[in-house]
Amino acid sequence: MEIFLQQLLNALSLGGTYALLALGLAVVFSIIGLINFAHGELMTVTGYAVCFALIWGMPFPLAVIAGLGVAMTAALLMERVAFRPVRGASGTTLLLTSFAVSAILRVLFQNLISARPIPVSIPASLSGVVTIGPLHLGMIQLISIIVTLAMLLGLNLFLHRTIAGRAMRAAAEDFAVLRLMGLRANSVVATAFAISGLLAGVAGILWVAQRGSVDPLMGALPVLKAFIAAIIGGLGSLSGAVAGGFLLGFIEVILQAYLPESLLPYRDAFAILLVISVLLFRPQGLLARKTLVKL
């Protein structure tokens, strides 16, 4: 029972990070039909920002704020420079553009910073272990669960209580008609990117805090996972992305715990196999939007 609870918390923490990333992908996809593979580089750039802010002597909380600011700015720049010129183009064009942005950023990180991992000095207070009854939980995992839940709650309030949030939900349904309400297409798209940047930034900081280093390819794997999570949930559905993220986290943690040692290297293959089986039964994803998103 205790082991199970322990695993449950591990899964919540890992799944939460996937959920944040998948949500960032879904927010942008639901509005402009773009699967942003450069989302991982937003994580990476956040990691570098926090890393350098700490090296330059900023206190950790300030470094976190700087990292999130950099993440949102980078997302807005990406939209303005790379994606706005191809807005409305075919899904394939958008996808290739995002691959290009991702590749360019990775090369820049490698050449301008370093191809090797740079250590990030996370405060010692964060690497402690919290004991709740019989459970031992890493401080960072605990923070990660709390931060994820707070982000999900905050985003939900934003989407349902503010004009900008309602505009984003409406844009996901019918962008042309939203413009007939007098709301500027560019600001709605920019808001979506700023939010996806913020989500990538939070996920990036949680990721770095657990690993203690940043490297140019840091964002690649988690964003691939997030992409899978978003597909499980039904691409373009925000609640689906969150559900998919947690589900993938659970699958991975359970496989990690219960697969025989000789099969452990195939953990991700098993995870993807489970995903494929989900999609065999529900090809549109678990919580797909009823109206198909127009590409």
Binding site: I163, R169, A170, V177, L178, M181
Partner: peptide, 17 residues
């Protein structure tokens, strides 16, 4: 906007005016 409430549809209609 089918997934928004009636009120939210009206709010968006008047949002910028």
């Amino acid at each position: 906007f089918a997934s928004l409430t009636v009120e939210e549809n009206l709010i968006l209609g008047g949002a910028k005016h």
